[in-house]
């Protein structure tokens, strides 16, 4: 990844702290993430990787410091604006976070329904991303009937269906076998090629060494140079 010029940052963190009570989970983080970058946030378990991602999508509030995303200061975003702000992201979790009582189709369609898209568009778009992740046959299945790898593909489909600028992936391969993990990584790389910024948190050594993207290393809440 070549160095970008300074107008190209999509995410900027300045001296960011996150404390849970008295415990500091992130300590003085200053970090720029560039448009269309594929960034790996690495570090041992408990280092603060998930916390860093949560601060970006306002899953947690920053304790101190400033975060700018696409020019927006996150401290200025009101509660009412959060839903609209979050539509900028596609988020992928280690535990998939699919709704077990909705079908695969409904789980993915939810993103577009929530942003008020037309039914005909939703129908077309959801089927198209299901093909992208190779799950078009499972559209009427319920997530609990699928394997972990299949569920994660659905989660990827849900993350990309709204065509977000940024994908935040928190240990997306963490509980998958290596074949499934490869499928997920390739899907993310494809979406990256189409212009998205990817921020991926992982402690998977193999994945880290196989990846070409920029890597940052967190340890006990601090960014290691």
């Amino acid at each position: 990844m070549t160095k970008k010029n300074s107008n190209d940052q999509i995410i900027r963190m300045f001296h960011v702290y996150k404390r849970y009570g008295a415990k500091a989970a992130l300590f003085d983080i200053t970090l720029d993430i560039y448009k269309n970058e594929f960034l790996l946030v690495t570090g041992p378990s408990g280092a603060g990787k998930s916390t860093l991602l949560k601060l970006l999508y306002l899953g947690e509030a920053t304790s101190e410091g400033q975060i700018l995303i696409d020019g927006m200061n996150l401290t200025r975003i009101t509660n009412n604006q959060i839903p609209y702000f979050r539509r900028m992201f596609g988020i992928i979790f280690q535990d998939y976070k699919l709704i077990p009582t909705k079908t695969v189709f409904e789980n993915i369609a939810l993103v577009l329904e929530a942003s008020g898209k037309k039914a005909s568009y939703i129908q077309k778009k959801v089927n198209s991303v299901l093909r992208t992740v190779g799950m078009e046959e499972k559209l009427n299945s319920y997530p609990p009937s699928l394997s972990g790898g299949e569920q994660q593909r659905i989660a990827v489909a849900r993350a990309i269906v709204g065509e977000p600028k940024i994908i935040l992936a928190d240990e997306p391969t963490g509980s998958l076998d290596s074949d499934s993990a490869n499928i997920i990584m390739n899907l993310l790389l494809d979406f990256h090629k189409r212009g998205a910024t990817i921020v991926l948190a992982t402690h998977d050594k193999e994945l880290i060494s196989n990846s070409n993207g920029r890597k940052i290393y967190l340890k006990q809440g601090q960014l290691q140079q």
Binding site: I82, P83, Y84, R86, I99, A114, S115, G162
Partner: peptide, 13 residues
């Protein structure tokens, strides 16, 4: 849990 997920994908109140 379902509601939490809806919030994460940008659903309004």
């Amino acid at each position: 849990d379902e509601i939490e997920i809806m919030r994460l994908v940008g659903a309004t109140d």
